[in-house]
């Protein structure tokens, strides 16, 4: 049984993430419904609690329509290539001290690098579909994701700078005294920049020009159905949840909270869901903005602003000269 030990942590994390991501769809639908004075899913199980499971079964039983015009290898491979980076970002996140797949010493670099890889699978889906809507959507997606990746990286570097380590558990431990979101001025500005670039990098409204129901129907996934569609949806939500976990870890003190130590993962999940609901709140509150406005916000405002913020944080850290907070 000795050889089983390295398999345990990845297996538990993978299943936990799939479970959380499945139920996050219900959370978002309930939240969106409440914002629009609706009830949301209610029929399947008490208060619609079994809705995600029903959805999963339904998508599994659906016919898989593959149009004749698609580029088959690319089209079929795209959901898997899209899913891998979106789930792999959880690899370096510690859910409590010592609880996670791997607490690498380059944790956040790994997260940022892998998270940017999602665009490969997304573009494969758009290109392989041989559909004008899908290709337009995929090009817009690449355009937008690479534009917002930079402010995302730079704002995530501010907590790294304050903690002085790339290891995610060190960053969490550095916030034992003071969560970085409460760090005077620098922390709040970095958090705002992080949330804005998360919303944009996750392609959520008001930055959802690649989905744009009214013009591109569903964007890059328009030709997908059945289980392939389900995997693409799962990957998208997993990416949002991963970014929420990162936000909770970088700014909200990760597993810190009142109560005994074993409550840590619970607090972490709660904070991640808070970040997720912030993103969702933005999504359901604003109307879609144009592509030139999206790019202007990134290149003219967020990029210089986050760089100046990073320099400001560096001056504060060097001036105070203390390790950690």
């Amino acid at each position: 049984m000795e050889w089983l030990t390295p398999l345990v942590a990845p297996f538990i994390v993978l299943n936990a993430i799939i479970g959380i991501v499945t139920y996050v769809t219900l959370l978002e639908r309930k939240f969106a419904a409440r914002m629009q004075s609706r009830v949301g899913p209610y029929r399947v199980g008490p208060h619609g609690l079994l809705q995600p499971i029903a959805d999963a079964i339904k998508l599994m039983m659906k016919e898989d329509v593959v149009p004749t015009a698609v580029d088959r290898p690319v089209y079929n491979l795209a959901p898997i290539v899209f899913l891998v980076p979106c789930m792999l970002i959880f690899a370096t996140i510690p859910f409590a001290p010592g609880l996670g797949v791997a607490d690498l010493n380059i944790g956040i670099l790994f997260f940022l690098a892998v998270s940017a890889m999602e665009i490969v699978g997304l573009f494969m889906a758009g290109w392989g579909s041989n559909n004008k809507y899908a290709l337009l959507s995929a090009m817009r997606a690449v355009n937008q994701v690479i534009s917002y990746d930079l402010p995302f990286i730079f704002s995530a570097l501010v907590p790294v700078l304050l903690a002085g380590s790339l290891r995610l558990s060190d960053i969490a431990a550095a916030q034992a005294g003071l969560w970085f979101v409460f760090y005077p001025v620098v922390g709040q500005l970095a958090f705002i920049a992080f949330i804005v670039s998360t919303v944009a990098a996750e392609n959520r409204a008001p930055f959802d020009i690649l989905e744009a129901e009214s013009e591109l129907v569903a964007g890059f996934r328009v030709e997908y159905s059945g289980m392939k569609f389900a995997i693409i949806q799962l990957a998208e939500y997993a990416h949002v949840v991963g970014a929420s976990f990162l936000g909770a870890l970088l700014f909200l003190g990760a597993w810190a909270g009142p109560g005994p130590e074993w409550l840590g993962p619970g607090w972490f999940l709660l904070k991640a869901m808070f970040v997720f609901l912030l993103v969702t709140w933005v999504r359901w509150s604003f109307v879609r903005i144009r592509v030139d406005q999206i790019l202007a916000l990134s290149w003219k405002v967020l990029l210089p602003a986050t760089l100046v913020l990073l320099i400001a944080a560096a001056i504060v850290v060097v001036w105070r000269g203390t390790p950690g907070v």
Partner: peptide, 23 residues
């Protein structure tokens, strides 16, 4: 640490392939 990451990666791919095969 990297071994765990590779195992995790293999599990993700396996999950995708198995669920597509079951469907």
């Amino acid at each position: 640490g990297y071994l765990s990451v590779v195992i995790y990666l293999v599990m993700i791919v396996a999950f995708a392939i198995v669920s597509l095969a079951v469907a």
